[in-house]
Amino acid sequence: MPSTIRQIPLDTATQHHDHDFHQIVIGLRGQAEFEIEGLGGSISALSGCIVPANHVHYYAGTGDNRQLILDLSAQAPSLTGFHHELARLFDAPRFFTLDDPLRRYLDFLLHELAVSPASGTATQGDRLAATLLGCLHARLADTTEPGHRRIDLRRLDRYIERHLPSKLSVGDLAREACLSETHFRHCFRQQTGMTPWQYVRRKRLEAAHRLLRDSRLPLSEVAALTGFSNQSALSHACREAFGQPPSKLRGSSRLATGHSRALA
């Protein structure tokens, strides 16, 4: 997919979607509001935002608005080969403002689009896009990386506890956190130091240990209540995490010494 450059107004009613290609939006007239995976901001003339692929984003134009939009697949010539470093622009969403040199280049780009309809697609579009991306990369590469949205772990914990007996997927957790699955995985690992699967497994083990310690429920029921497929799976997990089978954990007043080691 080559780079495509288009000029459109944004609907004034709030819309949202995600797509499998990167996008840069630059305001030409009026104003627009964007929220990209929880990062919100406004775009007016000569400012813009970076929307990485597969990031859910909400957007709405205000009144008479017009936006320049660049659509860029990960395999676009302007992001591969000699230009491969420019792909780093899409590591995370962010907002930016054009400085004077970039404003002059934008005028040139708009002139090219006006005099040559083919400029918005194919080879010429890739050339125009690569120059713009290179200029943006030079200006943004040295700025502080924008903070990733922090996941509300208390809310996520409550969700996990409510659904502990069920099969939980990363997609389920990502939807609860209002993030795309790809962005959720990245943010979760950065925030907790573990994968979502490791985190849910730890929650299952903690709940199983509490039930073993405080109740006389059959092991099969403990397994079912904490999301283990059967008693054998529970027993294997307890031996691995606590160094003891479930029967030895009955009535204990604290976690086995292997607890911290296994759940860290």
Rank of each mutant, 00 (worst) to 15 (best):
P52Q: 00
E176D: 02
A74R: 12
P9M: 09
G258C: 00
Q231Y: 00
R239K: 14
F184A: 04
G193V: 04
L68T: 01
E85A: 13
P117K: 07
A130W: 07
T4L: 06
F184T: 09
T123N: 01
L72Y: 14
L136A: 04
D91W: 09
L113F: 00
T131P: 00
E145C: 05
L128M: 09
Q190R: 15
L39M: 12
G48N: 09
I24K: 12
A177Q: 02
A122F: 12
R185V: 02
D157S: 12
Y199H: 11
Q7W: 02
F90H: 03
E112R: 15
S166L: 15
R149C: 07
A233Y: 07
E112F: 06
T121Q: 04
S247F: 06
G38T: 08
L153P: 03
S260F: 08
G61S: 09
A237Y: 11
H163I: 03
R139S: 04
Q75L: 11
E35T: 06
D126S: 10
F108A: 01
P101E: 07
F34C: 06
W197Y: 13
P218N: 07
E35C: 06
R175S: 14
S247Q: 13
V222H: 02
R204I: 03
P218C: 07
L219H: 03
L179K: 04
L86H: 09
S47P: 00
G41W: 05
R250M: 05
T12E: 13
T195G: 05
R29M: 02
Q75D: 15
